[in-house]
């Protein structure tokens, strides 16, 4: 199990790194927002994996709240870009 988790976490870490590169380099603001959206989805999956590693069911609640907050954040950015705020 632990060797599999190492492979899984390396893949997910590279994915987070790639979306961070997009957040930093993205030529326009929507590009950065897309990078942020991707990064938050990956992070939600990662928190659930942490719940699995540490055997704590309470981390699942954190993942749920994180997903809700990330969704609200991206919607707020989208509204701002459109000029609705």
């Amino acid at each position: 199990m632990s060797s599999i988790l190492i492979i899984v976490f390396s893949l997910i870490s590279i994915a987070t790194l790639l979306s961070t590169i997009r957040i930093i380099s993205g030529p326009t603001i929507p590009d950065r927002a897309v990078g942020l959206d991707t990064a938050t989805t990956i992070t939600t999956a990662m928190i659930v994996l942490f719940a699995q590693i540490f055997h704590r069911a309470i981390y699942l609640d954190i993942a749920l709240v994180y997903a809700i907050l990330a969704f609200l954040g991206v919607i707020a950015i989208a509204r701002y870009l459109e000029g609705g705020m």
């Binding site: 603001i29 927002a33 897309v34 991206v74 919607i75 950015i77 989208a78 870009l81 459109e82």
Partner: peptide, 14 residues
């Protein structure tokens, strides 16, 4: 999908 839809629309309108 809702958030990417909102972003796509915002990007097009921007």
């Amino acid at each position: 999908p809702v958030s990417s839809n909102a972003l796509a629309r915002a990007a097009h309108n921007a």
